[in-house]
Design a protein around this nucleic acid. Structure first.
Length: 419
RNA sequence: GCAGGGAUUGUGGAGCGGUCAAACACGACAGACUGUAAAUCUGCUGGCUUAGCCUUCGGGGGUUCGAAUCCCUCUCCCUGCACCA
């Protein structure tokens, strides 16, 4: 796909945050067995995790052996990093379910490559306390642990405190590295920038317990260049990879709406397009910013990777019919029926007010909120915008029999089916 | 364990007996302008059967005509001392 070496490609794509290598070309000189752990504290991964998966894919394309870990054990404990207060423990069933979800999503995104999928619960659940304290704990010195930023923050003035459980998280993760070295010969760990400290726990442990040199590379947290915030949040919160949580249409829309500033970077991270392909799209984009060629390409490619070719095509088609003729064209019943697979569908009785429908669609969490949206001119039915809150004007927004299109805000569409 | 300090609506943070659904800032959301972008401006930000009513200020109980504000108690956090080295 490219004649770059691994180290060159990683740098070009902007995948390197911190690394224990003095010289990254060491990566090019041998085949590595690396491991990368994914959190299982939610039942779906997000686009943030997607960046990490794409990171792994670069290594895989260059012929390195991957061990992908779902954190069945670590998610039972909870990573204190980045949190300012103690987490609520999740039940074993929940985590087991999440691990299954994570495994499925990982397999889908990493499809086409060979890799070993493991769950760290397998080697931790039957470990004895004595074994843990003697064989593992003995290698960790308290002083550096306590000095870790996120732990220091929790312990110091104004901190929320930290339990021994969460405190031990990093040791557990270090143990994973040790185990994967013993079983698979893994000597490299990849992770997110926030995992740097936890990854180093494993490096230290390997050195102390096995006299083995090991390495870590972390990828940067993807930042939205326009806002300076963490990338990957939409209006409704996180952007999930699970189509049930973020529909392929919404997912596609998310990428299409990405800021100009960052598109090039996102193309490099979230797609597998080569340098020449990306250069070509960016050239087209530079000529006509309003054409948004880069965003379109990005949305297309990423949706393909996560949801497949068909879903990507469907999302694109839905987008065209909703936006390209924005406001000029009332979609007929057939066109609306075609959109039913892509947009949320709200079933309703004739007589239900628009407020109730908006709440049921999930675009507002209460009637009060729906009312506010209405008064702000955010709601339209079949392209008719409503502004008034009186009963008479409310009636004008009443959907008719059959299929209707409602729009809330700029980007939220739903089909309303009146029985 | 003892002594102080603290817990407020997404976050930070005012309020210290009625005028408090609770200042202000940030964030979020919406409108205008644009390119379904950014910036900017404007609005909005507990719920409801919305000129009114209801539920919120860590949990529970009390004082009072009236409590986010006062008292008791529980939980959690912080600081200092003690304990432990």
């Amino acid at each position: 796909m490219s004649d770059m070496t691994l180290s060159e490609e990683l740098q070009w794509r902007g995948f390197i945050n911190q690394s224990t290598f003095d010289d990254l070309t060491q990566l090019d000189k041998q085949q590595w067995t690396f491991y990368h752990g994914f959190d299982a504290s939610a039942d779906s991964q997000t686009v943030g995790n997607l960046a990490a998966m794409m990171f792994d894919k670069v290594f895989m394309r260059h012929g390195h052996k991957a061990i992908i870990l779902a954190g069945g054990a670590t998610s039972l404990i909870g990573d204190p990093g980045g949190k300012d207060s103690e987490r609520t423990l999740q039940s074993e069933e929940t985590v087991a379910h999440n691990v299954e979800c994570a495994k499925q999503q990982l397999s889908k995104v990493l499809y086409g490559h060979e890799f070993t999928l493991v769950n760290n619960l397998d080697w931790t659940k039957n470990m004895s306390v004595i074994e843990f304290l003697r064989d593992i704990g003995k290698h960790f010195s308290m002083t550096p642990l306590v000095q870790r930023d996120y732990i220091a923050k929790r312990i110091g003035e104004g901190g929320a405190g930290i339990s021994f459980t969460e405190f031990s998280y990093t040791i557990l993760q270090g143990m994973d590295f040790l185990h994967l070295f013993d079983t698979y010969g893994a000597t490299l760990q990849l992770g997110g920038a926030d995992q740097w400290g936890n990854c180093l726990s494993g490096v230290d442990l390997l050195r102390r317990a096995r006299g083995q040199e090991a390495h870590v590379i972390t990828l940067p947290l993807v930042i939205n260049k326009a806002t300076g915030k963490k990338f990957g949040k939409s209006e409704e919160g996180a952007v999930w990879l699970d189509p049930a949580k973020t529909s392929p249409f919404k997912f596609y829309q998310f990428w299409l709406n990405v800021d100009d500033e960052g598109v090039e970077g996102y193309l490099k991270i979230f797609t597998e397009l080569s340098k020449s392909e990306i250069d070509a799209v960016m050239a087209e984009f530079a000529e006509s910013k309003a054409g948004r060629a880069a965003q379109k390409k990005l949305a297309q490619e990423v949706t393909k990777i996560v949801h497949g070719v068909e879903a990507a095509a469907a999302a694109q088609k839905a987008t065209e019919s909703l936006f390209d003729r924005l406001g000029q064209h009332t979609l007929d019943q057939n066109e609306l029926a075609a959109l039913k697979g892509d947009l949320p569908v709200v079933q309703t009785q004739s007589g239900d007010t628009i407020l109730e429908i908006v709440v049921r669609s999930g675009f507002a969490s209460s009637k009060s909120e729906a009312m506010r949206l209405l008064q702000g001119g955010a709601i339209s039915v079949n392209w008719q915008k409503g502004v008034a809150a009186t009963d008479e004007d409310l009636a004008l927004l009443m959907p008719h029999q059959g299929l209707n299109l409602i729009k809330v805000g700029k980007n939220n569409f739903a089909i309303v089916e009146v029985a």
